[in-house]
Computed example of a mutant assay.
Amino acid sequence: MQLGVGTRESVTLEPARYEFPNPAGDKWDDNWLIISGDVSARDTEWQFTVPCLTTFEANQISAWLRSVADGSRKRRGRRRGCAVARIHRTKCCVQRCQL
């Protein structure tokens, strides 16, 4: 998934692999994904590869993004600076996860 490609602020997320390559019969562990991402904001860029999403969540996010792209989901009002603040919180979380 790529958002904002060709702009100064963008997010790219891509499933890299399953966290556990050999299914063990556990609904959650068998569906845990390692996600690779690239984030660019006005004054910063970073990359990450972390186990942070299940296949169930990936399907939900995919459906939501498609509904936004095709206009079937109504947009809510946007607060100034909100997207950048969320990106910075994600960066902090990802950095803590990688320690």
Rank of each mutant, 00 (worst) to 15 (best):
W32I: 12
D38P: 02
S40M: 04
A63R: 10
W28E: 00
Q60I: 03
A16M: 06
C82T: 02
D30R: 07
S67G: 15
S72L: 07
V68T: 07
P21M: 02
R79W: 04
F56C: 15
L53F: 06
W46N: 14
C82M: 09
R17I: 02
A58T: 03
R66W: 04
A63N: 13
A69V: 09
R80T: 10
W46I: 11
R17G: 01
R17N: 07
A58N: 02
E57P: 00
W28S: 00
I61E: 00
G25P: 01
V39Y: 08
S36F: 02
P23M: 07
D43P: 07
N31C: 00
A16N: 05
G37R: 09
F56G: 01
R66N: 08
D43I: 15
F56I: 01
G71D: 00
W32L: 14
E57L: 12
A24S: 14
K27G: 00
V50A: 13
G77I: 03
A16Y: 02
L65G: 10
S36D: 04
S62I: 05
A83L: 05
F56N: 08
K74N: 10
E19P: 00
V50D: 11
T49N: 10
C52E: 09
D26V: 12
W64V: 12
W46E: 14
K27E: 12
W32Y: 13
D26S: 14
R80L: 10
S67F: 06
R78N: 10
R80S: 15
R42E: 06
A83D: 02
A24L: 11
N59E: 11
I34K: 09
R78I: 11
A16W: 04
F48N: 14
I61T: 04
Q60L: 09
W28R: 00
W32N: 11
R42V: 13
V39C: 02
G37F: 03
S40Q: 06
D43H: 14
W64N: 15
K74I: 10
R42Y: 15
N31L: 00
S36E: 09
E45G: 07
A69R: 13
R79L: 13
D43T: 14
S72D: 12
R80A: 08
A58Q: 02
A24Q: 12
S67H: 13
T54E: 00
A83Q: 02
K74S: 12
R75Y: 13
L65I: 08
L33T: 07
Q47R: 05
T49P: 03
L65M: 08
D70T: 15
D30G: 06
C82W: 01
I61Q: 04
